[in-house]
Amino acid sequence: MVTSSLLLSITTFTFLACSVLYMAGGVFRQKQLFFVGSMVASGSLILQTAGILLRWKESYDLGYGHAPLSNLYESLVFAAWAIMLIYLVLEYRTKQRSLGIFPCLITFLAMAYASFSTNVDAKIQPLLPALKSNWLIAHVVTCFIGYAAFAVAAGLSLLYLAKGKAMGSSNTGPASGFVPEPRQLDELNHQMVLFGFLWLSVGIITGSVWANSAWGTYWSWDPKETWSLITWLVYAAVLHARTMQGWRGNRVAWMSLLGFACVIFTYFGVNFLLTGLHSYATK
């Protein structure tokens, strides 16, 4: 029988295949490999969408009836889905397939961690009363769209830095001519960061409206909340640094990576190292 966990396990491996295809395409400079990678990625995304929808239905069959966004496993799957979706839209709009290496790799890692780590429980569980709110769905979905955009932006930044290094040593470095021009990378990075900033803002705001309707405080300096604010501040700094003269390029790329490190810490570090309201999300 086809279950959601079967579909999601398959996508773990197809995402691995995409990562390999994109990397091979980059190393051997073969556009055809990129093309195949892109096709596999699109197919995986469709499969994964089906898996998520099926899991939603299964939760109703179990009598719990909630959107598949309630624990670490489900959020990892959704994060992988969002990164892939945003990346493929970007690829479609820019026709630049070389941008795919990092997003595919991180999607695969998220799925692999969700499927194989002993820290992550893949069972469908019932919801605690505080989590029964449409605000929860809005909050989680929007935060993760933001995080996914930041992941793609981090990939662009890495590419920018790698390309800068390659150009510094010789004009015909491994990446030159095959990836977009630095100016375009910089611009795309900025667009992605602004897009992520928009959705992170929506995520923080829906979270705070939800907290206000459940507990009567829209802001309580809970560690997870605070870390999302830290992330938000770092990306605000990235957006503004670009407006200052001489801050384009490398510095903005490094700051964008710093921002992504904050995203990762907000997501994992807070759950495993700090405690607070959101600690339900550890299992």
Binding site: T226, L233, M244
Partner: peptide
């Protein structure tokens, strides 16, 4: 904008200490 960047990062570092 230099002040802005300073304030953003100072607020971020302060908030980290608090967590």
């Amino acid at each position: 904008l230099k002040l802005t960047l300073f304030v953003f990062l100072a607020l971020a570092v302060g908030s980290i200490l608090g967590t």
